[in-house]
C-alpha cells in the first residue's frame, strides 16, 4: 500500500520545485522516472531472455520479475508530464544550430512524442501481454527481444542523451539498458525473491555478471573519451566534475560496485539470501547514485534539483512499490486457490 502521506509529501516537493525552477524540477523528475522505470525494463529483458534460454533462475524469479514489469504501463504514462514541457527540459532548439538536420528530423517535439508513444507504448504492451504464469515462448521471446532492444535504445537516446545537447556516445544506450537489468536483479535480491540457495546462487551470479558489465561499459566510455580528449566529448565529464558531483560515481563504485563484488565472489555468500539482500540493496544504491550523476548535472545546476529528485522518487517509487505488492498478492492468491482446488 502506498502511504498517502508519502505521496502528498512527494507531490508537495515536486510542486514546490516546479514553482521555483521548472527546468530543474523536470530534470529531477526525469531522474526519478528513469530510476523507477529501471527494474521494470530490466525485468522485461530478463523474462524475454529466460524465454529463450530457460533455466531454473527464471522459473523461480518469474513472479518477482512479472511484478516489476506490471509497473511499466503506469510508469510509461507518467512520461506524459515531462512530455508537456520538452522545451524547458531539453532547451531546444538551443544546441542544435551546428548540427544540420538533427533538429528537423530527430530532436523536435512532434517526432520526439511520436517516438516516445511508439517505444514506451510497445514496451508497456509487451509487459502487459507477456504471460506472468509461465515461461514465454521461444518465438515470442526472440522477436520480442529484438524489438525490445530497439525500443530501449530509442528511450535512452531520446530521454537521457539529449540532456547534454552536443554530446554523443555510441555505448550509452547499451550502458543504460544493462544498468536497468542490474537494477532489476538488485531489487529482486533486495526483496529476497530467491529463497532456495541454488536459485540465490544463480541470482547472485547474474548480479555479479551485470555489475561487471555496467562497470565495464561505464569505464570504457570514460577511457575512450578521456583518451581522445575532444572538447565536445569531455564536456560531458567536465560538467560532472564541478561541486560535489564527482563524489557520486566514486561512492557508487565503492559501495555499489566494489563491496558487492568482493562479498559475492565466494559461492557461500551468493547462496545466502540474507547476504544477497544486503548486497542487492548496496548495488541499488550504486545505480541510484550513478544514474543521478548521469542525469542531474546536465545543464545549469541548483539546489532545486534535490527536492525535485527526492519528490519524484517518493511519488514514483511509492507508486511502483505499491503496484507490484497488489500484483503479487493477486498472483499468490491465484496460486493458493489452484493448490486448494487440486
Amino acid at each position: 500500500m502506498i502511504r498517502p502521506l508519502t505521496l502528498a509529501a512527494g507531490l508537495a516537493l515536486l510542486v514546490l520545485a516546479a514553482f521555483l525552477d521548472l527546468s530543474l524540477a523536470l530534470r529531477g523528475l526525469l531522474f526519478a522516472w528513469a530510476f523507477c522505470l529501471g527494474p521494470a525494463l530490466g525485468a522485461l529483458a530478463l523474462l524475454l531472455t529466460h524465454g529463450l534460454t530457460g533455466g531454473r533462475w527464471g522459473d523461480a524469479l518469474r513472479p518477482t520479475f512479472a511484478a516489476f514489469t506490471a509497473t511499466l504501463p503506469w510508469l510509461a504514462l507518467v512520461a506524459v508530464v515531462p512530455a508537456f514541457f520538452l522545451g524547458s527540459l531539453y532547451g531546444w532548439p538551443h544546441g542544435l544550430e551546428e548540427r544540420p538536420g538533427v533538429g528537423t528530423y530527430w530532436l523536435n517535439e512532434p517526432l520526439f512524442l511520436a517516438r516516445a508513444a511508439l517505444s514506451l507504448g510497445f514496451l508497456a504492451a509487451l509487459a502487459l501481454f507477456l504471460p506472468a504464469g509461465r515461461r514465454a515462448g521461444v518465438g515470442v521471446s526472440a522477436v520480442g527481444l529484438v524489438l525490445y532492444v530497439v525500443a530501449v535504445t530509442v528511450v535512452a537516446l531520446d530521454w537521457l542523451m539529449p540532456l547534454d545537447p552536443k554530446w554523443v556516445s555510441t555505448t550509452y544506450p547499451a550502458l543504460v539498458a544493462v544498468q536497468t537489468i542490474l537494477e532489476a536483479l538488485a531489487l529482486a535480491a533486495l526483496f529476497r525473491a530467491a529463497t532456495e540457495p541454488a536459485v540465490a546462487e544463480d541470482l547472485g551470479g547474474l548480479l555479479l555478471a551485470a555489475l561487471l558489465a555496467v562497470v565495464y561499459l561505464a569505464f570504457m566510455q570514460y577511457l575512450v573519451m578521456w583518451y581522445s580528449n575532444l572538447p565536445e566529448k569531455v564536456a560531458w565529464y567536465a560538467a560532472r566534475e564541478a561541486g560535489f558531483w564527482p563524489v557520486l560515481p566514486v561512492l557508487a563504485f565503492l559501495a555499489g560496485g566494489l563491496v558487492p563484488f568482493l562479498v559475492l565472489l565466494p559461492r557461500a555468500s551468493r547462496r545466502d539470501p540474507g547476504t544477497l539482500a544486503v548486497m542487492g540493496g548496496l548495488v541499488l544504491l550504486g545505480v541510484l547514485l550513478h544514474l543521478a550523476w548521469m542525469v542531474l548535472p546536465a545543464g545549469p545546476g541548483g539546489w532545486v534539483l534535490l527536492p525535485a529528485a527526492g519528490g519524484g522518487l517518493l511519488v514514483l517509487g511509492g507508486l511502483a512499490l505499491a503496484l507490484p505488492t497488489g500484483h503479487r498478492q493477486r498472483e499468490a492468491k491465484r496460486g493458493a486457490h489452484g493448490a486448494h482446488d487440486a
Partner: peptide
C-alpha cells in the same frame, strides 16, 4: 519459431 516454443529444456 513458435514450433519449438513448447520446449521445456533449460540449461539449469
Amino acid at each position: 519459431a513458435s514450433s519449438d516454443a513448447s520446449s521445456s529444456g533449460s540449461p539449469g
